[in-house]
Design a protein around this nucleic acid. Structure first.
Lengths: 341, 341
DNA sequence: CATAACCGTGCACACGTGTGCGCAATCAAC
DNA sequence: GTTGATTGCGCACACGTGTGCACGGTTATG
């Protein structure tokens, strides 16, 4: 039942375990004859190095902890995919945990990671409060925040994200250019900071164009429900005799809104334009295909992991803010005649 | 820079590290006075147990390895969510890795898990060949296969899955009852076994009803592309002067097919019925909402993890095959007049 | 008061690896 | 042939934790 260790190999080869260890690691002070013999015995016995013992000895686990809010969210699914790919490629094992948008669980997960001596941590959608950040700062694990919902400016903390404000600006420019003068923003309270930035960029840009304050309404869902359902519900609260365009926190909410519109016969985009955020896979396959502010999701995950690796390697790094791009599809069109002021 | 260990606590409390260890673990042979003092010093110093050292000592890591084909796939996202939830609740850390449908990578990941001494492994969508299974059997790690693409009947191997054949039967019954007499199956070659079972259940049932062989055509995508795109492409290859119903390997393919149909003006469900598989979140929000064979995805993940925990606890277990259910929505309807024989 | 039972703690080892240091053997140089 | 360098390997310890055993001290018992 016991697994084969270097001690077992040593016994067979009639050398000490030190010699076996050195031979396996390619130390050049071991003679070729002995080394090849050891390697052969190792494969014969089916030896597998014990990563736990190695970790203890080397005080390093080659392990990364990733905590996200929800793995089943299509956005995070892609991000995790990017993180995993780079992690795998660099021989780091990946711990995954989900926080379900609960900051205390987020911290709890991080503590578990700490106990397991992960080399580094990536936190998605961080909603940690100041007190929690202080606790996190005490355990000095290199940490990368990915699309953080709060500013964590501490030494040893790094960040990768997209410019949410710029995304809001893009949406506003696009819809304004199409002639929309009564608009709505459908937000998400589960992600306070990014929600606010997208909303702000959107609203500020429109105001800059001269849009009166009462011509822009914003609805933020209070619930933790599924985004698709939230979008459906928020869309039903809108007065469509005025509003001709919706900008949604993300694609799931937009797709939910789109479903509501079709179910009550609102013609998208002839009567109503809808713009989403993220550019999830489904966005190009809805009917009509969704105009959206695209985030490079997989790249976001890859970048976060690469940044973390650089930190671990002691290289100088800089935080990265990626820029979102506007992807125009069929869900947005010129405002219907007679609605512009 | 060194982290605080029980040795450090021992020094402060002027006892031996054995006493500290016992106090922390609640051993009743330590006097109350000493124990409380030790606990206080522990929190003062900010002690965190070293899970690596514990693992080495106890020959058990409280760690589970999960390997899936693609985290970004909406189906697997939900499954991972279920696995993670149960894992977390039982204080097991979860290693995640993706195989990208490559059996050799699947095995490679398992070997890494083995090196890290995971207590158990869950393999999603296993496509391991016989040789790989033999290798896997040599390393005696309790393993649960989740919706396996092959029969792995070995001692120490367990399985959780759904009855794909029954799913195919359900789809056939539903579409036949609606009067469809020319049908097509849009499959996926990335998942050979489940694809075959769904196709077989579908075809056998229809033949049982007396459907002539040439009235059912099957298309299997040869590529590794995104399912949504595969569905779109496969749907364009169909002759719609005959075919009035599509049964698709999964919802993503069905949604892709649906998108193609709308883009060329085929009315779903008036002209064409579409049935998917899985019941992903998006299925109820497409237009029309997708009729589909539902899998309990989160429950599947939870069940797999619970089965694994039972195995680890030495309890007797039995493999579980869950039964899919038909969810009728708006994408399926009676066959258009004049098409039935 | 002597002996036994019991309670609280420390010693020492183990888990599996990696590595600094030393030691023996071989070889080269003068 | 003595000295010095070089090569190849083992000894012993460390990483942090848990636990069997022994041992000293206190209390109960006769």
């Amino acid at each position: 039942m016991r697994r084969v260790s270097i001690e077992d190999i040593a016994r067979h080869a009639e050398v000490s375990h030190s010699t076996v260890s050195r031979a396996l690691r390619g130390n050049k002070r071991i003679s070729l004859a002995v080394r090849t013999q050891i390697l052969q015995i190792a494969t014969e016995l089916g030896y597998t190095p014990n990563a736990i013992a190695q970790s203890l000895r080397q005080r390093q686990t080659n392990t990364i902890g990733l905590v996200v809010t929800d793995v089943a969210d299509p956005f995070w699914g892609e991000v995790v995919k990017g993180v995993e790919a780079v992690s795998m490629r660099n021989q780091k094992a990946l711990f995954l945990s989900a926080s379900q948008y609960d900051p205390s669980r987020q911290l709890a997960v991080i503590e578990v990671f700490h106990q397991r001596w992960v080399d580094g941590i990536i936190v998605g959608d961080s909603q940690l409060g100041d007190a929690q950040i202080v606790r996190l700062a005490r355990i000095k694990v290199p940490t990368v925040f990915l699309n953080s919902q709060a500013d964590h400016a501490y030494p040893g903390f790094h960040a990768v994200g997209i410019d949410n404000y710029a995304g809001g600006v893009l949406a506003a420019q696009h819809l304004w250019a199409l002639g929309h003068r009564h608009l709505a923003y459908l937000g998400s309270t589960k992600r306070p900071a990014s929600n606010q930035m997208r909303s702000l960029g959107f609203a500020a840009t429109l105001r800059g164009y001269g849009l009166p304050a009462n011509a822009l309404i914003t609805h933020h869902s209070p619930s933790l429900e599924d985004d698709l359902r939230i979008g459906y519900e928020l869309a039903r609260a809108i007065d469509y005799t005025q509003t001709t365009a919706l900008f949604c926190y993300n694609d799931s909410i937009a797709l939910g809104a789109l479903t509501y519109c079709r179910s009550v016969g609102i013609d998208v985009p002839a009567q109503l334009s809808i713009v989403g955020f993220d550019d999830v896979a489904m966005a190009q396959f809805s009917m009509p295909a969704l105009t959206t502010i695209a985030q490079p999701k997989v790249a976001l995950g890859e970048t976060a992991m690469q940044l973390l690796l650089a930190v671990l390697a002691g290289q100088p790094t800089i935080d990265t803010i990626l820029t979102p791009t506007l992807v125009v599809r069929q869900s947005s069109a010129p405002a219907p005649k007679g609605t512009a002021q």
